Amino acid sequence: MGWVAAGDGYEVALVEGRVTARSTAGRSAGRQLKTLPKAVREHPETDRLRRFAEWLDRHAASCREQVDAWMVSSLPVPTGLLARVWPDEAWQAALRDLVVVGDGEDEVGFLRDATPDGELRLVDLDGETVRISPAVVTLPHPVLLDDLDELREFAAELGVVQGVDQIHRATWLRPAELPEKDTEVKEFAGGRFPSRFRLAARATSLGYKVSGGYATTRVRDGGRTVEPAVWIGEPYWDGDSETGALCWRDAEGRQLALREVGPVAWSEGMRMAAALHAGRTVEEGKNA
């Protein structure tokens, strides 16, 4: 975006997401200023750019949220859609270097480009550029990637930084042997917080929903919607609070046996419980 006039002797522009001014007169003409002069701060063009910058931030966040939703639930995404949104810098930042899976076993790699005619260009584990153009692709949840360790090593070699947390996302594998009737996991229960409000605030700051006495998220796993839920205390409790057990519920609200929970729902539920527990009050000193 170019420079626009903002009063006599100044121009403004968005530089790295921030409104910046430069002088257009005198010996300092063309030099960017460290701060905005008062006349520039109050100019309508400055206000317009600020509001535009805020919109760009919201748009970028929306793109990341949508791509994260596709990835967490491993939803099929039309290749043509990726081609259409790719020119948008916010979409490209969210999508670039995500692991994409096409139709065949060899159609796996880090997404590097999407052309207007619907062709995707990937870098595979051999470092080769692969061109694919299936009708749909998936951005798999990392727990479903057989070559996750290799992908992580190769990503480190390439210096890959993903805009959406995929291959370095914390994952948990469901144990192979589980008691038949168990419906709860208590591994991350007992994390104490000074108030129920603080615990609920941590949940919402991490992007989770607070409903009743639970922090919840929704995951599509194996064709069905599953809701992991962690007990965080009664809504109007004004004393200290602590994280409770983790359970999983189906679309009708029925609590699932642990054996019924799929790999993605298990991993995302454990991730939520661990993230809430990590914010607990940690006692210090010899009596901790």
Rank of each mutant, 00 (worst) to 15 (best):
L82G: 00
L258C: 10
E42R: 13
V210P: 06
R50C: 04
V160P: 07
E105A: 15
V4S: 04
V185G: 01
R131W: 03
L56W: 05
D126N: 14
F188H: 11
W70V: 00
W70H: 05
A275W: 00
R112S: 05
D68P: 07
S28E: 15
A245Y: 09
S23E: 14
L148D: 09
Q32F: 08
R174W: 06
D57F: 00
L144W: 06
A90Q: 14
L158K: 05
F193Y: 15
G80A: 07
D238W: 07
D8V: 12
W86C: 13
R220Q: 11
L151W: 15
Y236A: 02
G9M: 05
T183D: 10
I167T: 03
G222I: 08
R27Q: 11
D182G: 08
R224P: 06
L75Y: 00
W3Q: 12
L158Q: 14
A93T: 09
P37V: 04
V12A: 01
A5V: 09
A257I: 06
P116A: 11
E157K: 13
A5L: 05
A39D: 05
G30E: 02
D147N: 13
G190T: 12
G118N: 09
A39L: 07
A69E: 14
R198L: 12
G191Q: 10
V161I: 10
V72P: 01
V185D: 15
A251L: 06
S211F: 03
K38F: 06
R18I: 14
E42I: 06
R280L: 02
A251C: 02
Q255G: 00
L111R: 05
A29F: 01
R31N: 08
G239Y: 01
R202Q: 12
S205V: 01
R18S: 09
L120S: 12
A203C: 07
V15L: 15
A60N: 09
A156Y: 03
E45L: 02
A274G: 05
E283F: 11
G233F: 08
T243A: 04
L246M: 09
Q162R: 00
V161S: 13
D57V: 08
A251P: 00
S74R: 06
A203R: 01
P175A: 08
D68V: 03
P134L: 04
Q32D: 12
V108K: 13
K181E: 15
E65A: 15
V282E: 11
V123H: 05
E184D: 06
G279E: 10
V108R: 15
A245D: 14
T46I: 05
V219E: 03
A257N: 13
V161P: 00
V99P: 09
D8R: 13
T171H: 04
K286Q: 10
Y214Q: 12
V108N: 02
V100L: 07
E157I: 11
R174D: 07
A25Y: 11
V130Q: 08
H277G: 01
Y214E: 14
E252W: 12
L151M: 10
A114E: 01
R174T: 06
G191L: 12
A170L: 13
R196S: 12
D68G: 09
E268V: 04
L256V: 01
R112I: 05
V282F: 09
T138N: 04
K186I: 11
L145G: 02
A29N: 03
H168C: 04
A176S: 14
T217C: 14
R254I: 02
G26E: 10
T138G: 02
Q255V: 15
Q162C: 00
D97M: 06
A229E: 06
W237P: 05
S23Y: 03
D124T: 09
K209A: 14
